[in-house]
Amino acid sequence: MGLADSVAYTRPVATPDDVKQWRERWYRHAMPFAADGTVLRQGRRPPAASWPAVPPEWAVAWKYPAASALAEVRAVEFTVGRSGRITPVLELAPVQLDDRRVQRVSVGSLRRWQQLDIRPGDQVEVALAGLTIPRLQSVAWRAQQRVAVTPPDPAQHGPLTCWQATPGCEQQFRARLVWLGGRQGLQLEGLGADTWQALIDAGLVHGLLDWMELTPARLATVSGLGPARAALLARSFADARDRPFARWLQALGVPSSVADGLPDWAALSARGANDWQALEGLGSGRANQLVAFFACSEVRTLATRLHAAGVQGF
């Protein structure tokens, strides 16, 4: 097929030592393409009719060690997502990993950060997962002076919190707006996190649906939004009223895709845990989440507002 490199870099081997020799050679010397390991496979594959739905037994990848480096932690920040998940992120003194300049790395979870007890001034080892994504490996050593770091309170954040821009809810509330207007939700044109933040800072959006009442004139008062951009946003907001019921459910953050076969909000909110579990693929945990979602007073208030606005299904 004209792929000359495939021929040049395919070699017959008979022993593990042969494999090791070629792997070491290719790992240490210049290659005409990027590679993350060596593949060892049999010369012949079994017939396709005998392949099971599992990784093949006739091939295995021997990955090269991930490039790693030490970096000093300059700060520990915390992001709060739409569902209330708290993610610690380390701000690092810039380090070079292969062709990537790394300045930030996620710790993964609040619990892991607490276990590692990472503070500004600590030295951490970072590597590239899959040659692209920075990953925290370990804490190499700790600064003698332990700087106090206060994370958000997990008890104040969850799937049913922060429907308004109240103190302590800034990040989660904005994440709800970004989800609502994004491709998973209403697909509102011309909206991103920065625009939502500008509307919040201008005092125009305090609750999750306040944007529905904004006029072009009020939008034009926001710093950075001219008349043309304000008119575009106003049209986008007006078009949202015609989105299908199922898409509105996704935008509000319903814990599962549950609109199929149920025509409106009243039918959904009347279901109990046993009713939800009767649906294929829904266990007790997800069923209880759905009951709690539809019983939430904040969510009911949003549904009432959407009903008054004439949105389908509410």
Rank of each mutant, 00 (worst) to 15 (best):
G226F: 08
A175E: 02
A231C: 09
L160H: 03
E170V: 01
G181I: 05
R183N: 15
P227I: 10
D201K: 14
G207F: 03
L209W: 10
A175S: 02
G224S: 04
A228M: 13
G207V: 02
G182E: 09
Q171Y: 00
S223H: 06
A155W: 01
A230Q: 03
T215F: 10
Q197T: 13
P159H: 00
D201G: 05
D153N: 10
L204E: 06
A217V: 12
M212G: 06
Q197H: 12
S223A: 10
L233S: 04
R183Y: 11
P154L: 02
V222Q: 09
T221V: 10
M212W: 11
L177K: 10
G190D: 14
G203Y: 12
A234Y: 10
R235Q: 15
V178R: 14
G224W: 05
V222K: 09
G158Y: 04
A193C: 09
G168C: 01
L177V: 01
R229T: 15
L199C: 14
A231D: 08
L209V: 10
D210E: 05
R218W: 11
S236C: 07
Q197P: 11
R183K: 15
L160W: 04
A234R: 06
A155S: 06
G203C: 09
V178T: 13
D210R: 02
A230N: 08
L177Y: 05
L180Q: 06
R218I: 05
R235H: 15
L204Y: 04
A238F: 09
G203P: 12
D201M: 13
L225C: 09
L188F: 11
G158L: 08
L208R: 03
L180M: 13
G203Q: 13
L188Q: 07
A231L: 03
W211C: 08
W163T: 00
G192Y: 12
D201N: 14
F237M: 06
W163Q: 00
Q184F: 10
G203M: 11
G192L: 11
G203L: 07
S236D: 07
R229C: 09
W211H: 09
A238W: 08
C169I: 01
C169L: 02
D210H: 04
L177A: 10
R183W: 14
A198E: 09
A165G: 01
L232A: 14
A230T: 12
E189K: 15
L160K: 01
T215G: 03
W179Q: 08
Q187K: 13
Q187G: 12
V205P: 07
M212P: 07
L199Q: 14
Q197L: 15
Q197C: 15
C169N: 00
R176C: 04
F237D: 05
L177M: 09
Q156E: 06
D210L: 02
R235P: 13
L188C: 08
V178H: 11
G203K: 07
G226D: 14
A165Q: 01
L186F: 02
H206Q: 13
S223L: 10
